[in-house]
Computed example of a mutant assay.
Amino acid sequence: MSPGGAQSIPPGAVACSGCHPPSAGGAIPPLAGMSSEAITASMLAFRTGARPATVMDRISKGFSDQEVRAIADWFALGKLP
């Protein structure tokens, strides 16, 4: 965390905004405000192949479990990159 208690953006989270929009309305859901548990579960399911994907299966393999949790926690706070 940065001074003052504000959580800084975790590495990798900025890349999410390349596909995930800031608000609902498209085929790809926004991440800001989604629960940390839902984001983490989706990332892990993409990684194992339990959830079909076009690119998220490859993207999710690039993050450790700790990185996935940090990104999920950050987006769950309603943050946008």
Score class of each variant (00 low, 15 high):
1 M>Y: 12
1 M>S: 13
1 M>L: 11
1 M>D: 13
2 S>L: 11
2 S>H: 05
2 S>P: 03
3 P>G: 10
3 P>R: 02
3 P>T: 05
3 P>M: 02
3 P>V: 03
3 P>Q: 03
4 G>S: 07
4 G>Y: 03
5 G>N: 09
6 A>N: 12
7 Q>E: 10
8 S>L: 10
8 S>P: 15
9 I>K: 15
10 P>T: 07
10 P>A: 04
10 P>Q: 03
11 P>K: 11
14 V>D: 13
15 A>T: 11
16 C>Q: 07
16 C>V: 11
17 S>Q: 14
17 S>W: 05
18 G>H: 02
19 C>L: 03
19 C>Q: 08
20 H>P: 07
20 H>R: 08
20 H>Y: 08
21 P>H: 06
21 P>A: 08
22 P>L: 09
23 S>V: 12
23 S>L: 04
25 G>K: 04
26 G>K: 06
26 G>C: 03
26 G>A: 10
27 A>T: 13
27 A>C: 00
28 I>R: 09
28 I>E: 03
29 P>H: 08
31 L>T: 06
31 L>A: 05
31 L>K: 08
32 A>L: 02
32 A>T: 01
33 G>R: 01
33 G>S: 09
34 M>K: 14
34 M>N: 04
34 M>Y: 03
35 S>R: 05
35 S>Y: 02
36 S>L: 06
36 S>W: 04
36 S>D: 10
37 E>I: 04
38 A>Q: 11
38 A>N: 12
39 I>S: 02
39 I>D: 02
39 I>W: 00
39 I>H: 01
39 I>T: 07
39 I>F: 00
40 T>P: 03
40 T>C: 02
40 T>W: 04
41 A>Q: 14
41 A>I: 04
42 S>Q: 13
42 S>N: 15
42 S>M: 12
43 M>H: 02
44 L>K: 15
46 F>N: 08
46 F>Q: 03
47 R>Y: 05
47 R>P: 08
47 R>S: 12
48 T>D: 07
49 G>A: 09
49 G>T: 06
50 A>L: 10
50 A>C: 03
51 R>C: 03
51 R>T: 04
52 P>N: 07
52 P>Q: 10
53 A>F: 05
55 V>D: 06
56 M>V: 07
56 M>Q: 08
57 D>Y: 00
57 D>Q: 14
57 D>A: 12
58 R>C: 00
59 I>N: 06
59 I>M: 12
61 K>M: 04
61 K>W: 00
64 S>H: 07
65 D>N: 12
67 E>Q: 15
68 V>Q: 00
68 V>W: 00
68 V>F: 00
68 V>M: 10
69 R>I: 13
69 R>S: 12
70 A>E: 14
71 I>V: 15
71 I>C: 09
73 D>C: 04
73 D>Y: 04
73 D>I: 00
73 D>Q: 11
73 D>E: 15
74 W>H: 09
74 W>P: 13
74 W>L: 10
75 F>P: 13
75 F>R: 08
75 F>A: 09
76 A>S: 15
76 A>F: 09
77 L>A: 15
77 L>I: 02
78 G>R: 00
78 G>Y: 00
79 K>D: 06
79 K>F: 05
79 K>L: 11
80 L>Y: 14
80 L>W: 15
81 P>N: 12
